[in-house]
């Protein structure tokens, strides 16, 4: 039994776009656009996340719509992320070891998107729930992906055991 399950969902189709005209362009494409920076909405088979002020990540079938020719002030962003879902009872403990952001303080109701670093790797993170368990969706540049996945698995693997009492450890 693993305390945290980490699933690779990189194969889900996704696309990105940024620029001052991006929000309006997406709306014109018929996509719901999150109003506030760093929030997300779920859409048919996926989600749309607003990354900061003027960048968007669309995941799921709707991402195909972003193949439309960009308008003025709209800059397509090729997304080649490693995408992960980490879920489990002890997710907070995992996060506490790799990230300085207080995820517990974020109300999931506000649908927050967090652009931060975890274990030294830049990530986009969305706290969520998966079948009643705390979960986190994560995207990172795929060139960091292999190392990042391996590191997450290592840290999570050690969480399965309580921290051992090691008398050769520190003492003062």
């Amino acid at each position: 039994m693993s305390a945290i399950n980490i699933a690779d969902v990189s194969r889900t189709p996704r696309a990105g776009v940024k620029g001052a005209g991006a929000a309006a362009w997406l709306a014109a494409l018929g996509l719901p656009v999150p109003d506030a920076p760093n929030t997300w909405l779920s859409i048919e088979g996926g989600l749309i996340a607003r990354l900061g002020l003027a960048e968007f990540l669309v995941e799921g079938p709707a991402s195909a719509k972003l193949a439309a020719p960009p308008a003025h002030g709209v800059y397509p962003v090729l997304r080649q992320d490693t995408a992960l879902v980490a879920a489990g009872e002890r997710l907070d403990e995992l996060l506490a070891e790799i990230c300085s952001v207080d995820f517990q303080a974020l109300g999931p109701a506000a649908q927050p998107v967090v652009l931060t670093t975890m274990a030294g790797v830049t990530v986009v993170a969305i706290p969520a729930e998966e079948s009643g368990m705390p979960a986190l969706r994560l995207w990172c540049d795929s060139t960091w992906g292999a190392w990042f996945c391996q590191t997450l698995a290592e840290v999570a693997g050690e969480l399965i055991q309580p921290i051992p009492t090691n008398h050769q450890g520190a003492t003062s």
Partner: peptide, 23 residues
């Protein structure tokens, strides 16, 4: 306040590695 072991300060020591798709 009290001396701190270097192992504690260092922690895991994350050194991220970047790999091209052809690695």
């Amino acid at each position: 306040f009290h001396p701190v072991p270097m192992s504690h300060l260092a922690g895991r020591g994350f050194t991220p590695e970047r790999r091209t798709p052809m690695h």
